[in-house]
Design a protein around this nucleic acid. Structure first.
Lengths: 135, 135
DNA sequence: CTTGACCTTCCCATGATGGGAGACCCCACA
DNA sequence: TGTGGGGTCTCCCATCATGGGAAGGTCAAG
């Protein structure tokens, strides 16, 4: 397979496939003409990467997960720890975004949203109340 | 005020203050010696930026909000629209992160997390079930 | 043998932030 | 008056994941 086919087969762009190679996540063979050559194992790695990325794992985690995947004597505890650490990070981030959304929703609820200039949202940004919703 | 004092007064790093200036969010005066000079109005702008950033607004939104803040004939509807669009973006992002966390938590719940290699998390990454939790 | 579709490498951009180098400035203290 | 330490200036580079685009090589079909 050449890179375009590998991209179609894995759902990863050619750009990113080359990038993943450049950071050492995979090592496709080369043809005589310089083209990269992907086998089924390479595509499996690319798919693995994609699924990990879909779950929000940063590439450094993906690197560790790939190493564990290849290591048949791995301890599932190691995989689990990476996963649960990531879950904690995801949930913290989600909470943070939700808190922002809630604060803003609260402010927007008190904004008339008409042609007049008075607006508690702008007021809060300019001059936040020390009390009220914590951030 | 010189930049260090403005940074302390606004809670924004010197680096970022210079950056915000470079993208046109504020225009501090210059002293004879080339040092930037910040007045109370500048610090108020910096504070405004910080509060907007704390609420997750991207700098492009901050730019618009600043323009509306300065425009005393603004329509509060314009502010509100920016805010609610941002709330929608925040909530969508939060939902996305939570979905990832939930999927991973589900996988981790079925992982022994011991010294043995068997691990549904790795299995799923390598070979995702077409059925099961949607992503 | 040309044309078009593919591949290669290299540079640049995003968004928000920080690190660090090298040069300049200023004030206080000896 | 000199010097040391702390401020500031600009400029370049890095992060993280991704993409755009240019300039040039390769291949297969017409």
């Amino acid at each position: 397979m050449i890179i375009g086919e590998a991209a179609a087969a894995s759902g990863i762009s050619q750009k990113m496939i080359r990038h993943y190679e450049s950071i050492g996540l995979l090592h496709p063979a080369r043809r005589e003409n310089g083209y990269r050559s992907y086998g089924d194992a390479d595509v499996a790695v690319l798919r693995f990467i994609r699924h990990a990325r879909d779950l929000g794992f940063p590439l450094e985690d993906v690197r560790r997960l790939l190493a564990l995947w290849r290591d048949h004597s791995r301890a599932s505890a190691d995989v689990r720890r990476i996963a649960l650490d990531h879950v904690a990070a995801l949930e913290e981030k989600a909470r943070s975004l939700q808190a922002m959304a809630a604060s803003l929703r609260h402010l927007a609820a008190h904004c008339q949203g008409d042609a007049r200039p008075d607006c508690p949202i702008i007021d809060e940004l300019a001059n936040p109340e020390p009390e009220g919703t914590q951030r």
